[in-house]
Amino acid sequence: MPAYIVMTREHTQDAQEMERYSEKAQAAREGHDPQPLAFYGDFEVLEGSAMEGAVILRFPDMAAARAWYESPAYQEARKHRFQAADYRVFIVDGLAEA
């Protein structure tokens, strides 16, 4: 069953670190092939705290999602995200496809 990594950027503190993160995160996708379903497009917050943008990545299953997130390449990219902005990141199981 598919799994999704959802990332919401809540507040950017350092635009240059955000650029470094973006470059490294893009390279970290190689070999993991996540399917982007949403990538910082237009949005509207209906409930909860404000945010600056969101990303939703689809993976074949939870193991594949964790493998990408825990990969050395993404862990290197993540260091820049921590310096660049406040995020909320989670993995959620999807529904079995009909």
Rank of each mutant, 00 (worst) to 15 (best):
P36G: 01
L37T: 08
L37M: 14
A38E: 08
A38K: 06
A38D: 08
F39E: 14
F39K: 06
Y40A: 14
Y40I: 11
G41R: 10
G41P: 09
D42V: 12
D42T: 15
F43C: 10
F43P: 10
E44Y: 08
V45Q: 15
L46R: 10
L46P: 03
E47L: 10
E47Q: 14
E47I: 00
G48C: 08
S49L: 14
S49Y: 12
S49Q: 12
A50E: 14
A50L: 12
M51N: 08
M51S: 07
M51W: 03
E52C: 00
E52Y: 04
E52I: 01
G53E: 03
A54C: 09
A54W: 05
V55I: 15
V55K: 03
I56V: 15
I56C: 09
L57R: 06
L57A: 06
R58H: 08
R58Y: 07
R58F: 07
R58P: 00
F59M: 01
F59R: 04
F59E: 02
F59V: 02
P60S: 12
P60V: 07
P60K: 11
D61H: 09
M62R: 15
M62S: 11
A63M: 04
A63S: 08
A64I: 01
A64R: 03
A64D: 02
A64M: 05
A65Y: 02
A65W: 04
A65R: 00
A65D: 01
A65K: 05
R66P: 00
R66D: 10
R66H: 13
R66G: 03
R66N: 10
A67L: 05
A67D: 08
A67T: 06
A67N: 06
A67P: 04
W68R: 02
W68S: 06
W68V: 02
W68I: 01
W68K: 03
E70K: 11
E70R: 13
S71K: 05
S71A: 02
P72W: 00
P72H: 02
Y74I: 00
Q75I: 06
Q75R: 15
Q75W: 04
E76T: 10
E76A: 15
E76L: 10
A77V: 03
K79I: 13
K79Q: 15
K79A: 15
H80C: 06
H80S: 12
R81A: 14
R81E: 05
F82Y: 11
F82V: 14
F82T: 14
Q83Y: 07
Q83E: 14
Q83T: 05
A84R: 09
A84L: 13
A84H: 09
D86K: 09
Y87T: 13
R88H: 14
V89C: 09
V89H: 07
V89N: 07
F90Y: 10
F90G: 00
F90H: 04
